[in-house]
Nucleic acid binder design. Structure first.
Lengths: 208, 208
DNA sequence: TAACAAACAGTCAAGCCTGTCGGTTTGTTG
DNA sequence: CAACAAACCGACAGGCTTGACTGTTTGTTA
């Protein structure tokens, strides 16, 4: 704390090791699913000895819960940064929908999906997922409303924004079964038209 | 085939045994998830010896693929019968949405969700799920369009119906994480209003 | 530099799951 | 009724996973 480390600090080693293990966990979730994500496999994937892995995450639950937190913050950050770059003016609504759809078909969403489904039948996991997903949900709602240029708290608007998020979630789920980009694009086109017709815009067609 | 059986026909025994095993499989999927659904557990649940189970479904894959087909037809039948009873006239749209939402939060949907997610990382399962889900998808689209009293093939209408189905799918997924009926009801209210405003009704307010 | 603690490494036992196999019962058929 | 086949039963072996446990290396601190 008070003295300066000379070589490679333990704190740094721990941080790096945990990060590698969590990244490997996400990769395993995407590639072999939750049930296929054994601690042994994660260790191999991360290039870490099993002893080291079990040192940092004593039980599998410790590892998975940490992965939930990791994925949760990753999703929030990613959504915030991509939505921040959404264009304003003409076609703004459609662009935002495109960003949302991309997010809900990305690997990080797939990993989250695996954890959601696993959490349904795992009390400990469920607690972590529920707590963090609530936060991500609020954050997504706020970010989306802002990106659309509407008041996310207004009575009618609120529900349409939530419906939008639930729609892209549904599209994301459908995407894992069979990828159909054309179908998705058509639906998003229609949805964008609907939103533009229904949402009371505060900044209808305004450049920055 | 040509003679009348005196006791309990083998064909009947087989049919009953398979039905019991498939029902037990669905129950297990709902209660302990896909990875928890071991053939041993299914056997116990069905009150069938492990030997008998393995006789009818030699491998786990055989059992699961059969379960996919079982669930697939169950979903289609259930949706068809409930949507057929949807009221016409005032509030028809909202009533149809309610039925859809109920379907996508029912146990049978949960079981299907488990299989979808598992199929993502299991080629054999994926083949079965993809093939059957396509059929259910078409069927759902047709049934929903009919229940709403619209032409499901019309250019603009088609996308709105599909969006509706994707929306309730997303709501169903969210429901597995945390049940929030109030939130769901508000969203469906808003979406019903939107649909009524956007859909070109052929039979706006007509009793049978 | 000496002593300590954390990080790291690999092995072991217990438990579960799947698929196979020999044996028994029950229905079918000539 | 006899012979056969399908249905049914329980046990076993092989493979994998998890968590515990002993030892080794590396960083910290007096």
């Amino acid at each position: 704390m008070t003295t300066q480390p000379l070589r490679v600090p333990q704190e740094e080693r721990t941080r790096a090791m945990r990060a590698r293990l969590l990244e490997a966990t996400v990769e395993c979730l995407v590639e072999v699913g939750f049930s296929g994500t054994s601690t042994t496999l994660v260790s191999k994937r991360a290039g870490v000895s099993r002893g080291a892995q079990v040192h940092h995450f004593p039980t599998k639950n410790d590892l998975v819960v940490a992965a939930v937190e990791h994925i949760s913050t990753s999703r929030g950050d990613e959504l915030a940064s991509t939505l921040a770059e959404a264009p304003t003016g003409e076609g703004r609504t459609r662009a935002v929908l495109e960003i949302l759809a991309a997010h809900f078909t990305a690997p990080i969403f797939t990993a989250a999906l695996e954890l959601w489904v696993a959490a349904r039948t795992d009390p400990q996991l469920s607690e972590a997922v529920q707590r963090l997903e609530q936060r991500v949900g609020r954050q997504s709602h706020q970010l989306t409303a802002d990106a659309l240029g509407v008041d996310g708290a207004a009575p009618g608007t609120r529900e349409l924004v939530q419906a939008t998020l639930d729609l892209v979630r549904g599209l994301g789920l459908a995407n894992t079964i069979s990828d159909d980009a054309k179908r998705r694009a058509r639906i998003l086109d229609a949805w964008a038209a609907t939103l533009d017709a229904q949402l009371p815009r505060t900044t209808p067609t305004q450049g920055v």
